[in-house]
Structure formats: C-alpha cells, structure tokens
C-alpha cells in the first residue's frame, strides 16, 4: 500500500519535473529554428526547412556583443561579492565588539535599508553615482557594496555573536593586532555565513537589471541589459537572435548551479533562517 502510493508520487514528481524543464527545452529548440517560424510554431521541432544551425547564435552575438556583456557581468559580480563579503563581515565584527551609540545607529540604519525598495532611491542614487564619477564598472562595485551592506551585515552580526571572545583574547595576548586577529581567527570561523552571503549576493548581482542599466547602461552592458537591448525600441524583435542569447545566458548559470548546488541549496536554506 505504502509502496504503491510512493510509486504514484514518484510518477507525479517526474511529470512535474518535465513541466519545470520544458520552458528551457523549448527555448533551446527554438534557438535552432528560422526566426519566422519561432513565434508562430514554438512547440514543434525544427524541420529540414526551418533548421538554421548556429546562425541565430552568430547573429545574436553580433547584435548584442554578448561576450563583452558576459565579461562585465562576471567582473562586476565577482568583485562586488568579494567586496561585500570582506568589508561587511569586518563591519559586523566591529559592530558586535565595539558597543557605542554610533555602532548601534549604524546597525539599525543597515537593517532599515533592507526593507526599502530600490525605486525609492533609484533616481537619486543614479544621479549621485553620476556626480561622483562612479558610473563605470569599478564604481558600481562601491554601489553594490552599499546596497548589499544591509542584509550581509545583518547576517554576519548574527553569526559573530556566537564566536567566543576567549579565542580572540588569546590571539591578542599572543601579540596579534585586531586586523591579524580578525583575518587569522574570526574570518575563518565565519565561513558558513560567508558562503551563504556570497551565494545570495551573487544570485542578485548577476541577474540585476535596473541598477546597472541606470548607472552604467549607456556605456557598458551586462547580460540582462544586453538581452533587454535586443528588444530595442518599437521595431519587431529578432526572435532567432533572442532565443540564442537566452540560451547563452542560461548555460553559465546552470553549469555553475550543477557544480555548486550543494552550497547553493544549503546557502539559500541557511540565509532564509537568518533573514
């Protein structure tokens, strides 16, 4: 009886998985079809007449300069995540260890920033970035640090509170200055939270569209900006190129996911418990 029921559940889950994967498969199939047969018949396989090989990919790459978009996305994501992980964990440690009116105001200001939607600061932030000359792929890292600081500091402070003071004091007696104590003793202990913070921020920054569009979109394109750019103004979309570029933007994410899925799933679950 129980076995029969589990078999039924297994079949149900299998069907659901197929439904979950289907949209991606449909996009892949259409990326090899003639652009005019995509919109009208998206659910059939390419035939001898509609199969186009990789020409959609070549056209898409030319239209979007996708490779440079990929490069900028990677550059901005990697360095923003690094900056967030290193600087906010240091700040979190300082906030927990040095109790002053200033540090508690800073802590509550950071927590407050978590509930403010981006639209509230969208216009003024992009103007500020522009005035300060931060409207380039290096400056945007500082913007991401400021925006990611709320959640990241909040999660790190939660963990730092559980780090025993004794070890740090021992290190101080052994002649470590605070910087050495932090990087040799505390930072390694924070590793589980560091992984969680890194994953949540990487997912956000890699896929972010509006912030980079407003800050650096005129001169530099990240992947989401390049995809949106394909749609262009009023003219019709080149469906072939669009499908090919969708596939190219999904592949790196899926590959990364399959390699790091253990950390990603753990990180998401852990991040939720603390958030």
């Amino acid at each position: 009886m129980a076995r029969l029921r589990d078999t039924a559940f297994f079949i149900l889950l299998l069907l659901l998985s197929l439904i979950f994967i289907a949209p991606i498969l449909i996009v892949i199939i259409n990326s090899f079809k003639l652009k005019f047969s995509i919109a009208t018949e998206p659910f059939i396989l390419p035939t001898a007449q509609t199969f186009t090989g990789v020409s959609n990919y070549i056209e898409g790459l030319n239209k979007t300069s996708f490779l440079s978009a990929f490069g900028w996305s990677l550059f901005i994501t990697v360095f923003s995540v690094l900056a967030i992980v290193v600087f906010t964990s240091m700040t979190a440690w300082y906030i927990v260890r040095v109790k002053t009116v200033f540090t508690s105001i800073l802590y509550y200001a950071l927590v407050f920033s978590m509930i403010v939607p981006f639209q509230m600061v969208m216009f003024t932030m992009s103007k500020t970035a522009n005035v300060l000359g931060l409207d380039n792929p290096f400056g945007i890292i500082l913007i991401y640090l400021g925006f990611g600081a709320g959640l990241a500091t909040f999660m790190f402070t939660g963990f730092v509170k559980s780090v025993p003071l004794g070890i740090e004091e021992a290190a101080t007696i052994d002649g470590c200055n605070p910087l050495q104590t932090y990087f040799k003793i505390v930072f390694p202990i924070l590793k589980p939270t560091t992984i969680t913070v890194a994953i949540l921020n990487a997912m956000w920054i890699w896929n972010d569209y509006l912030l980079p569009y407003l800050v650096i979109g005129n001169d530099y394109k990240t992947i989401p900006i390049a995809i949106q750019y394909l749609k262009g103004g009023y003219g019709s979309v080149d469906m072939g190129a669009m499908m090919a570029m969708l596939v190219l933007s999904i592949i790196p994410v899926v590959v990364f996911y399959l390699f790091c899925q253990k950390y990603i799933i753990k990180g998401v679950a852990a991040g939720a418990v603390k958030g």
Partner: peptide, 10 residues
C-alpha cells in the same frame, strides 16, 4: 569602506 559605500548608495 562599508560606511562610505552605504552613505553613497543608500
């Protein structure tokens, strides 16, 4: 570093 970024961005 965090403080400056937070002031500018938020």
């Amino acid at each position: 570093p965090t403080l400056i970024a937070f002031l500018i961005a938020f």
